[in-house]
Design a protein around this nucleic acid. Structure first.
Lengths: 264, 264
DNA sequence: GAGTGGTCTAGACCACACC
DNA sequence: GTGTGGTCTAGACCACTCT
């Protein structure tokens, strides 16, 4: 037994010797608490934008000290699943929140410096089709070949000028009822819509960037000459359990904008 | 007075009422400890690759509890200034360390997955000149116009094939004695050389990515047709005090490689 | 003033590395 | 075994927000 000597009835338990160092190489209490909290988040016991119980309440519920709950929350905040507001409480992160609005769009106009508040791009949805996954999409999303998907095409404009052309693919199963009318009618970011209407939360993403040349169709939509170099951005976005739930490819016009990245 | 009631003689002090909430909006003890530790790092009291004193020693030195020192170290680890090895100690991060070797190069071959260990690129230095800063370089590095700088050109090869062409500019003042012979003779990354030979530590960087077309000279060196789309990566790297000490522009050939990015 | 997150302390014990 | 970082607890008090 470890870390539990003074705990008469553990919710999270390491009471069994068997649990010690078998295959799972020792998980501290706060990580087990973290896992339980992620579960509560995934099961929507706590919903985006809402506050979760206070640290002392959670400590009672899980039968651990406040410090241990705090450490679990610390990591969830680092993972962008929760956010704290001193004096007010701890809240479930939401794509509605202006704070996490631009977490996934790294393109910014050349002139504005990093301190300035980001310019809100306008989204123009071109189409939204039900289709079957191609080989590439199926692999990226971990689906069976020719599984049902939803394909979206849209154009992003900064200050009226077209800058990003995107094709977005999501599994059809999770997005029942998603169509062009809904996309056009929704106020807010795409991930906000996914979260609000379909309960799908994008937690992290991986991007692959390349330089390519504009084909005729893309060039026309982006209002650049055919052959112009464009930034190709492929993204796989993941939800709970590191499950991929979106694949997209964007073509970014980088004449007056750039992709901004911080290396820590 | 706050947090110091039981501390008879503080090294870090908040004894004076004046310090309370004048302009500097309340800095907790562990941040003051952090600042002192950064100072020790900047002044090379603790050197890259070496271990720093144990947490209990530091607690004694700064007259705070181990938990407070620990929290300061936590942040320094997050900032990539220190790294912990359980059972061994806490160490000053170094660009020699394989762990932080590829922190700043995000280009990877298309085929290898993220789990695989990165392929070591080979560096071929083309030139290294002393010159005077142009307007753009001076602005990026925060130097006076026409301040002395060192300009480096190099080619990176993955598996023998040229993939990255870079121009690198550093202030001449900090890099006395840097020349082509030294670059060619050094084993290890450029930042490792900067750290080892000149005591200049790159702590973080900002990059701006764009798509451009290959000019004739660049195309020849990268062994691609003129007009090929290339990924342009501009970087400003910062050392202690957020002082910019390197500006570089790279042209990445992305036919068989891509720039990999994680969005948290 | 009450409630929440944030800081700090002191002490106990666990996991890991090296001798 | 000794020393290091890592975890956990219990309790006190500070800073912030809202009522």
């Amino acid at each position: 037994m470890k870390f539990v000597l003074k705990l008469p009835s553990m919710t999270v338990s390491q009471h069994h010797e068997a649990e010690r160092n078998e295959t799972a190489s020792f998980s501290p209490l706060y990580r087990q608490i973290k896992r339980l909290m992620i579960q509560a988040l995934e099961l929507s016991e706590w919903r985006p934008g809402e506050s979760i119980p206070s640290e002392s309440e959670l400590a009672q519920r899980f039968r651990v000290s406040q410090g241990t709950v705090r450490k679990a929350i610390d990591e969830l905040v680092t993972d962008n699943l929760l956010l704290r507001r001193q004096g007010k409480g701890t809240f479930v992160a939401s794509h509605d929140d202006p704070r996490s609005q631009f977490r996934f769009l790294r393109l910014v106009p050349d002139d504005v410096d990093s301190a300035a508040l980001p310019v809100e791009p306008q989204s123009e949805f071109l189409e939204c089709l039900r289709a079957r996954a191609g080989a590439e999409t199926a692999r990226a999303l971990g689906l069976a070949a020719s599984a049902p998907i939803v394909a979206i095409r849209r154009l992003l404009r900064f200050a009226g000028k077209p800058v990003v052309l995107e094709e977005i693919y999501v599994p059809g199963e999770r997005f029942d009822g998603l169509d062009l009318a809904m996309l056009k009618g929704y106020q807010g970011s795409l991930y906000s819509l996914f979260e609000t209407r379909f309960g799908v939360r994008m937690l992290r993403a991986e991007e692959r960037l390349r330089a390519v040349t504009a084909e005729r169709a893309s060039a026309q939509l982006l209002d650049v000459p055919e052959g112009t170099p464009l930034l190709s951005v492929e993204r796989v976005a993941y939800t709970f359990g590191d499950k991929p739930v979106e694949w997209r490819r964007g073509l970014y016009s980088t004449a007056a904008h750039h992709y901004r990245n911080e290396l820590g």
